[in-house]
Amino acid sequence: MDRDSRIRLSTTASLRREAFGALVYSYKDRRLLFIDQRLLPYLTSDGTRTVGEIADSLAAEGNIPGSRLEKTMALLEGLRRKGVLDEL
């Protein structure tokens, strides 16, 4: 995954918004993830913006996952490997 990647929630996962961010459930392997709201812009992306574009707009707001993109991408890559996110 890199700045130009476009991502979207997997079709076999479900995201439900909660006060703290979201719960994500992966139907395929029954994983349950608690997601902080600061990561939500990435997980609710419909793929029209790149990861880098999302990060830049977040960084402008002082959002940590925006300004620490490399580390954030590692988290997102982890979600991709778990089948929660698809790279388009």
């Binding site: 349950l32 993830l33 608690f34 997601i35 902080d36 940590i64 620490r68 580390k71 988290l75």
Partner: peptide
């Protein structure tokens, strides 16, 4: 630290 914050952003629970 930001690293600690980043690690806390996802919490996986054994279903």
């Amino acid at each position: 630290t930001p690293q600690e914050v980043l690690e806390d952003l996802i919490d996986e629970i054994t279903i």
